[in-house]
């Protein structure tokens, strides 16, 4: 290695060490331009306040209370928007006295569906009033009859019973006490119930 620098490097070093002559008015010109810039508006200031990250002091107890409140709001909103159909309209269930009401045009909004099926393990009623999703029926104390009370809107409703046997078989059964609807290519025929004044 030699201590003698390359002439070109030496020239660069000298140039770098040479003091830079700055125009005394340059600082003034720059500051004048800065002062000419409009200050940030209030709108942007508020937005910056909203999005600016910050630390939130929160104890575990307050955090838990806040969480419980949010859950409560969610449950309340969800519960209050569920459509309960005519149940909310009538406010109470009324049992239809007639044991086989689907034949009759009743003025109550609650219809009691009844099926005698002593061998069944479970029985459900499905129809247009529950979007063809099963509503379970309960076995009466006698053990052979199944029933369920469902609030129905006035008009014509189509339904059937789904009987699950003890041996695991499932059978769609029309109500033997009600008028029949024609079979239309979907298998088991359905029954018809007329409800309320609009039946006329």
């Amino acid at each position: 290695m030699t201590d003698q620098l390359d002439p070109y490097v030496d020239w660069i070093a000298r140039e770098a060490r040479r003091p830079v002559a700055v125009d005394p008015m340059a600082v003034e010109r720059v500051m004048a331009r800065v002062r000419l810039e409009a200050p940030p508006t209030v709108r942007f200031a508020r937005w910056r306040w909203l999005v600016e990250p910050r630390s939130l002091p929160l104890s575990p107890v307050v955090g838990a209370a806040l969480a419980a409140g949010l859950i409560g709001i969610g449950v309340f909103l969800g519960h209050s928007t569920i459509d309960r159909g005519s149940l909310t309209r009538t406010g109470q269930f009324k049992t239809v006295v007639e044991p086989r009401p689907p034949l009759a045009s009743v003025h109550d909004t609650v219809i009691k569906f009844v099926l005698v099926a002593p061998q069944a393990s479970t029985v459900s009623v499905v129809g247009d009033f529950n979007n063809w999703q099963a509503t379970p029926m309960t076995r009466t104390p006698t053990g052979s009859t199944w029933s369920v009370a469902i609030p129905l809107r006035p008009g014509r409703h189509v339904y059937a019973f789904v009987v699950n046997g003890a041996n695991g078989t499932t059978q769609w059964v029309a109500d033997p006490t009600a008028p029949l609807a024609p079979e239309d290519g979907l298998g088991a025929p359905n029954s018809v119930v007329l409800v309320g004044g609009s039946a006329s």
């Binding site: 910050r54 630390s55 939130l56 929160l58 575990p60 955090g63 838990a64 969480a67």
Partner: peptide, 12 residues
Amino acid sequence: TPVISRGSRVVV
């Protein structure tokens, strides 16, 4: 400024 504790963050 105090920061949110780890427990609170988990709860939230």
